[in-house]
Write a protein that binds this DNA or RNA. Structure first.
Length: 298
DNA sequence: GATCCGTGGGT
DNA sequence: TACCCAAGGAT
């Protein structure tokens, strides 16, 4: 664990850099919080789980225009939600967000909870999203650790090109670096993520622009390559995921109409894979079978 | 802890 | 062109 000196080397320059260089994103504008409050932050965090910022922005605005409160979304149908999610990817997130809206409406009177434990109990919310909502919506002091922060810490403090697998230790390390001031801690959380997203990137980091260049352990070591090979992402072409995506896209485009089962991707190269995709979509609650007809859930 | 889960842009 | 990778979470 790094000492207080290491923490000062990192927090002060990073927060100053953030104030000067942060991108102007919708959820960072004061008007956004005035209009949508913690609900807006929560929806944005769901969409940002593994989907790039530039793709999220237009969908977020459409979503919040249609469902500006948890209660309004809780009243929507699953089909409505899956259709509105469109091509954001990982459509189970749409189901989880819908369930979370119902849970917030039923258990919390329609107000997004502020307590991390209560947030963690909601569908689709894990260590990252729970703390992101508590910090970015409510301004509380918690360590927020996403993939960007893990990479920044791995380099600046650990001297490694890439972080290890996500772990509770990440939370502990970030907690040990957090400024005492509540307001400053929120800035530092956002700053670490922002640096990883825009400067300390995975592939081609721009160290010449980095506010931590003077103290970065990885840069000082000459930017060594990472030791162990990271798990390569599975090939998408020809995968079950691609098949699921194709089936669900068809159902979205047809909705509210149902598709005759024999008319669902009849020319798919691997019919058994197609049928697996249909079965798994039904099992996940993303599709519904009624006799020989398949549709989004009613 | 490993695996599964979409989709599209950057290089 | 192929590959990388993106504000994760559930199982």
């Amino acid at each position: 664990m790094p000492g207080p000196q290491a923490a000062r080397d990192v927090t002060t320059p990073l927060s100053e850099w953030y104030r000067a260089s942060a991108r102007d994103l919708p959820w960072r504008r004061p008007g956004f919080h005035d209009e949508f409050g913690a609900w807006g932050v929560l929806v944005s965090e769901f969409m940002l789980q593994q989907t790039p910022v530039t793709r999220v922005i237009p969908h977020l605005e459409a979503w919040l225009s249609r469902w500006p409160t948890p209660a309004s979304m809780a009243a929507a149908t699953t089909a409505d939600v899956v259709r509105q999610w469109a091509n954001l990817g990982y459509p189970r997130r749409a189901l989880w967000l819908h369930r979370a809206a119902v849970e917030i409406t039923e258990r919390h009177g329609g107000t997004v909870p502020r307590d991390v434990e209560a947030l963690l109990a909601l569908s689709g919310i894990g260590d990252y999203t729970a703390r992101a909502v508590a910090v970015f919506a409510y301004g509380d002091r918690h360590p927020v650790v996403d993939t960007n922060t893990r990479r920044v810490l791995a380099r600046a403090i650990g001297g490694q090109a890439q972080p290890g697998p996500p772990s509770r230790r990440d939370l502990e390390l970030m907690a040990s670096l957090l400024p005492t001031s509540v307001a400053e801690s929120a800035v530092f959380n956002a700053a670490a993520m922002e640096l990883g997203a825009t400067v300390c990137t995975s592939r081609a980091p721009r160290c010449e622009l980095c506010p931590l260049a003077g103290s970065c352990a990885w840069l000082a070591a000459g930017r060594p390559e990472s030791r162990d090979e990271r798990r390569r992402q599975a090939t998408y072409e020809g995968s079950d995921r691609q098949a699921r995506g194709a089936v669900l896209r068809l159902l979205r485009e047809l909705s509210p109409e149902a598709a005759a089962l024999h008319a669902v991707l009849p020319d798919w190269p691997d019919p058994r894979q197609r049928d697996r995709a249909i079965d798994s979509l039904i099992a996940d609650g993303l599709a519904e079978a009624d006799g020989e007809w398949l549709s989004l859930p009613r």
